[in-house]
Amino acid sequence: MSEDLIGLIVDLCEKEAIDLVQKKIDAGGDPLKILEQIRTAMTKVGEKFESKEFFLPDLIMSGEILRQITEILEPKLKADIKAQSLGKIVLGTVFGDIHDIGKDIVKFMLESNGFEVHDLGVNVPKEKFVEKIKELDAKIVGLSGFLTLAYDTMKETIEEIKNAGLREKTKIMIGGGQINEDVRKYVGADSYGKDAIEAVALAKEWISE
């Protein structure tokens, strides 16, 4: 069996990658080192997506591998993971819209790139966003929406954030099937991403500001 965990994940060899992690853990391997390798692998997966070598099914499959590996690692890991977080992000599908697939992919890509994502789910009232941003002192907010009805609720959500006096402190990105620059302007977001990789790039850019 290949010992190259990074390679196995990037090649989407599900069973082999999981077996290898189990073997390493059984042999007393360091879970943090494995976690580091996973992050490297996920960066490569992101690069392949960006260069159009990978598509959604590849992202979903890599996410599925990651989920299973994390299940193996979880009991071995201590609370020291969160300390490594790049930053906190509040994410959710706006009120009226119950689509979650795009949001979930964005969440998984942000997490696998080291962000701490607080997912509020779907059909999220604007007040919930404000509450969570305050509670976490989050600097980045992601609003998702698949239907055109989301244009208005995104706009209202951003206004609510503004009214709560939090707009200056937050960067807001939006995403979804019918989102473009016109929509971004209309709702008053800082930026939009056409896919999960752009969301990661935006978050990294904003966190380093």
Partner: peptide, 18 residues
Amino acid sequence: YAWPGHGVSPNLSYQCLE
């Protein structure tokens, strides 16, 4: 599905629950 008045507001479109 969730439909107007049954999972989504009466003023919105129905949506599939995948």
